[in-house]
Amino acid sequence: MSAPASEAEAPPAARPGQVTLAEIFLTFLLIGATSFGGGVVAYLRNTLVLQKGWLDEERFLSALEIAQALPGLNATNMSVIVGDRLRGPVGALVALLGMTLPGATLVMALGVAYASNASNPHVNAALVGVGAAATGMLAAVTLQIGRKQLGTVADVAIIAVTVVLVSVLHVSLIWVLLTVGPIAVLLYRPNTPPVPDRPEPHHGSL
């Protein structure tokens, strides 16, 4: 890894083709091995924009915009998009593998161990505690994102309708996406914002 770089001295964006596949793989492998708790967007920005200079801030945000609007996890979608921009489809594949390999190896090791120790009281106690902690974390992250991004009556209505459909009425996710999705986008259709002059959307996310 290069020395920590501040934003001012970030190197210029690399031209596609300059970066080797091995470098892409190792970079994403390191991010995949060190990012925890869904804060992967911050890790990606720090590495790809500030340290490596593979993308400038604008390209990074445009990639993030795509990653968030589409199905899939931000971490893996970003790996695919950035890898593709650096070295085409093979770069995308290599970045995806690097991002997921450390976690996949570890979770499988734990999963195999769990399968033969599921009735061990200590394993059980630890996982009950982890599950409770994960619930608190997800609730906090959801509230953080919600408070930073949202605030109009339309936002609150969309959130409430979505929660009622999924949690109370147990409507299948595909129907929730196909009904609430288009309505939500139409509520914010061009030129008729419910509230003008909204602040820049927050880009942190799971």
Binding site: L138, T142, L150, I158, I159, S167, V180, A184, V185, R198
Partner: peptide, 15 residues
Amino acid sequence: SLQRGLAPLVVGLMA
């Protein structure tokens, strides 16, 4: 519009 509209939907789904 897509980004702005999906934001509250995603928060609802996360909740």
